[in-house]
């Protein structure tokens, strides 16, 4: 019997090794370990054995059974692994095919620029203020030291609706409104972005509607050097740390002294080239110290308070920064134009 068992084990292990799939393995299990299997058959003859031999053969039969079982299990695991690998192999994809498109839109270039400027001044402690686009003559002009007969407020230059109402020609009225709101007794530190309108014929450099951002800081002891320092900081953050600024005298009815700010040309660094028309400088914005009449009209005592104000055009900044050559492009909304300037 001992020989018989040894032969069964040998034969079974051989068959297991050769088994090609799980089905064959199952057949092997049944034919050796099943109720009618070889080992069972052998064990049925145990009755004939002596009581000394019986446990030895029994033990041996169990060992053979275990060996076969283990071998079948191991084989099964390896067959399953092979089958899985085969299936995964079949599932492989061409990773070079394109991904499913995700539709994603983007902001308008002017919005990107306005938000960039907003964030820059927010970082310097400014609030963002908004105001109406249809303004009263008072806030658009009079409160800004442009009395009724002032040439700069010619009917020809503004879109009037009635004698007293017009589309604002700048965002300065928001400054006047904010100063009134603060009642002449607390500092004002604000910027005001928004749409403005002028009677210009639309062409490559003019638009009857455009965007403006103005800033205002009113407090005790504000100096013109503070305006210079602030604008310098803005210009370096907005256009690059290597850029220099230059202030020149200018004229605006609502500031005195008034300034025009240039930045050094990106292309020639001040040497003079065709981009800067040979001057080495590019005009960016206007500003100045708030005119005492503007302060007093808004309820601030010019003997106690002083301030500076500045204003710039995001269209112009976009044109300089991104080489947009025609201002009408901002309002035509050609999808190809818009996409070029989508910023995350």
């Amino acid at each position: 019997m001992k020989d018989q068992l040894e032969a069964i084990q040998k034969e079974a292990l051989e068959k297991v090794t050769q088994a090609a799939n799980l089905k064959e393995l199952q057949d092997i299990r049944v034919s050796y370990l099943g109720k009618k299997g070889s080992i069972t058959k052998v064990l049925k003859g145990m009755g004939k054995l002596s009581s000394e031999e019986r446990p030895i053969i029994g033990q041996m039969a169990n060992a053979v059974r275990d060996a076969i079982t283990t071998s079948i299990e191991e084989k099964a695991t390896s067959l399953e692994q092979a089958a899985l690998e085969k299936r995964l192999e079949e599932e492989s994809i061409d990773v070079t095919l394109p991904g499913r498109p995700v539709n994603i839109g983007g902001p308008h270039l002017l919005t990107s620029i306005v938000e960039e400027i907003e964030d820059l001044f927010i970082g310097m402690g400014y609030e963002v203020k908004e105001g109406p686009e249809v303004e009263t003559d008072y806030f658009n002009f009079e409160a800004l030291n442009l009395p009724k007969n002032h040439p700069a407020r010619d009917m020809q230059d503004s879109f009037y609706i009635t004698n007293e109402l017009l589309l604002r020609t700048h965002t300065s009225p928001v400054q006047a409104r904010t100063m009134q709101e603060y009642e002449g007794n607390q500092p004002v530190k604000m910027i005001c972005p928004g749409k403005v309108y002028r009677r210009d014929t639309d062409d490559a450099t003019h638009s009857h509607q455009f965007t403006q951002i103005e800033g205002l800081y009113v407090d005790k002891n504000v100096r013109m050097s503070d305006l210079k320092g602030t604008l310098d900081k803005f210009a370096k953050k907005m256009f690059g740390e290597e850029r220099k600024i230059r202030l020149r005298p200018s004229f605006f009815p609502f500031t005195e002294p008034s300034v025009e700010m240039d930045i050094s040309c990106k292309v020639c660094h001040g040497e003079g080239c065709s981009v800067c028309k040979g001057t080495g400088w590019i005009e960016i914005l206007g500003g100045g110290m708030v005119h005492p009449k503007v302060l007093s009209m808004a309820g601030y005592d010019p003997k106690v308070y002083s301030g500076f104000a500045f204003g710039m055009g995001p269209e112009r900044i976009a044109m300089l920064k991104y080489g947009v050559s025609d201002i009408r492009g901002f309002y035509t909304n050609d999808v190809r134009f818009l996409k070029q300037y989508h910023k995350a």
């Binding site: 907003e118 001044f121 927010i122 970082g123 310097m124 402690g125 400014y126 609030e127 963002v128 500092p187 530190k189 800081y217 407090d219 005790k220 002891n221 504000v222 100096r223 013109m224 050097s225 503070d226 210079k228 320092g229 602030t230 310098d232 900081k233 230059r246 202030l247 020149r248 005298p249 005195e256 002294p257 008034s258 300034v259 110290m289």
Partner: peptide, 28 residues
């Protein structure tokens, strides 16, 4: 003031930052 500043030279004005208001800037 402007007459004095422009003949003195705007480019000779120092660069300073406001020393007053320290409000925190933020969007509403």
């Amino acid at each position: 003031l402007e007459e004095v500043a422009r003949i003195y030279g705007y480019d000779k004005l120092p660069y300073t930052l406001p020393e007053g208001s320290n409000q925190a800037g933020r969007l509403t």
